Simulated scan of single mutants.
Amino acid sequence: MANDIETSTIALIAKAGEIEPGKITRDTELAELEIDSLALTEIVMEIEDQHDIEIDLNTAEAWESLKTVGDMVDMVKKLAAAQH
């Protein structure tokens, strides 16, 4: 399941940024992908729907903590594990 989360999260980010998924790794910085906050919000909403989780990104600190694709994947994995 963990790899599924990583793969699906990368696929969503790639789709939003119109980038080949193969060019995105855990170390890829979200800022590098030029994904704005609106697109990131849409990605988060899709992730929530896919994994039946709730991601609280209402605070500036939460947004600041998402620097890389790996940060986002780890957050989703943690929330999904807590849900099950």
Results as ranks from 00 to 15, higher is better:
Met75Tyr: 05
Met45Glu: 02
Met72Arg: 02
Ile13Lys: 03
Glu6Cys: 08
Leu12Ile: 03
Thr41Val: 13
Met45Trp: 09
Gly17Phe: 02
Leu30Arg: 05
Ala11Lys: 12
Leu57Glu: 00
Lys15Val: 04
Ile10Phe: 06
Ile10Asp: 02
Met45Cys: 04
Thr68Ile: 08
Ile10Tyr: 03
Glu48Ala: 05
Met1Glu: 14
Val44Asp: 07
Glu64Gly: 02
Leu33Arg: 06
Ile5Trp: 13
Glu42Thr: 04
Glu32Met: 13
Leu79Met: 03
Ile43Trp: 03
Asp74Ala: 09
Glu64Ser: 14
Trp63Phe: 13
Lys67Asn: 01
Asp36Ala: 08
Glu64Arg: 14
Thr28Cys: 06
Ser8Ala: 12
Ile5Val: 15
Ile5Gln: 08
Ile35Cys: 07
Glu48Gly: 07
Ile55Lys: 02
Glu6Thr: 11
Gln50Pro: 11
Lys67Leu: 05
Ile5Ser: 10
Glu64Pro: 10
Lys67Ile: 12
Glu20Gly: 01
Met45Tyr: 08
Ala2Thr: 15
His51Thr: 12
Lys77Tyr: 01
Asp4Trp: 11
Leu12Gln: 03
Lys23Phe: 12
Ile55Ser: 01
Met75Trp: 00
Val73Gly: 07
Ala80His: 14
Thr41Phe: 03
Glu32Thr: 15
Leu79Glu: 09
Val44Gln: 00
Ile53Ala: 06
Met1Tyr: 14
Ala62Ser: 11
Ala80Trp: 11
Val69Ala: 10
Thr28His: 07
Gln83Asp: 14
Val44Leu: 07
Ala81Asn: 13
Asp56Pro: 02
Asn3Ala: 13
Ile5Met: 13
Ala16Gln: 10
Glu32Leu: 13
Ile43Cys: 02
Ala16Ile: 01
Leu12Arg: 08
Lys77Ala: 11
His51Met: 08
Ile13Ser: 12
Asn3Gln: 15
Ser37Ile: 11
Lys77Asp: 12
Lys67Asp: 11
Thr59Gln: 00
Asp74Tyr: 01
Glu54Met: 03
Ala62Arg: 09
Ser8Lys: 15
Leu12Asp: 12
His51Ser: 12
Thr9Tyr: 00
Ser65Cys: 08
Glu18Asn: 14
Asp52Met: 06
Lys77Leu: 05
Asn58Lys: 03
